[in-house]
Amino acid sequence: MSKLAYYRRNWQLYALLVLPLAYFAIFKYGPMYGIVIAFQDFNLFKGVAGSDWVGLDVFREVFGMSSFYKALRNTFLLNLLDLAVSFPAPIVLALLLNELRGKRFKKFAQTTLYLPHFLSWVIIGGIMYQVFATNTGIVNLLLGRLGMAPIPFLTDKYDWLLTYLAVGVWQSAGWGTIIYLAAIAGINKELHEAAAVDGAGRLRRMRSVTLPGIRSTIVVLLVLKIGEIVQIGFDRPYVLGNVSVNDFSEVISTFVYKTGIQTADFSTATAVGLFQAVVGIALLLASNYAAKKIDGHGVV
Results as ranks from 00 to 15, higher is better:
Phe266Leu: 09
Trp11Asn: 10
Asn288Pro: 01
Phe39Lys: 07
Tyr7Lys: 14
Leu81Phe: 11
Tyr289Gln: 09
Ala38Gly: 07
Lys293Pro: 02
Ile124Phe: 13
Lys189Trp: 13
Tyr14Leu: 03
Val251Trp: 02
Asp198Ser: 11
Lys107Gln: 15
Leu81Tyr: 08
Pro31Trp: 11
Val223Glu: 00
Ile151Glu: 05
Leu146Pro: 06
Leu16Gly: 05
Gly168Pro: 02
Ile179Val: 09
Gly168Val: 02
Thr134Glu: 14
Thr254Cys: 05
Leu284Arg: 01
Thr112Ser: 12
Val299Met: 04
Thr263Lys: 08
Lys70Arg: 14
Glu99Cys: 12
Ala282Gln: 01
Thr254Glu: 02
Trp175Glu: 01
Ala173Leu: 01
Ala38Pro: 04
Gly227Ile: 02
Leu203Ala: 13
Gln262Tyr: 08
Ala183Leu: 07
Gln171Ala: 04
Tyr129Pro: 02
Thr177Gly: 00
Gln171Ser: 06
Ser172Val: 04
Ala109Tyr: 10
Ala71Cys: 13
Ser253Trp: 03
Leu56Asn: 09
Gly55Ile: 15
Ser120Asn: 11
Gly55Asn: 07
Asn246Ser: 12
Lys157Thr: 09
Ala277Trp: 01
Phe255Ile: 07
Ala277Ile: 04
Thr254Phe: 01
Asp41Leu: 05
Val169Lys: 02
Phe76Asp: 11
Lys28Pro: 07
Ser66Asn: 15
Lys293Trp: 06
Lys3Ser: 15
Ile294Trp: 06
Ile214Asp: 01
Leu191Thr: 03
Ala183Trp: 00
Gly273Val: 02
Pro212Phe: 12
Ala166Asn: 07
Ile26Cys: 14
Pro237Tyr: 00
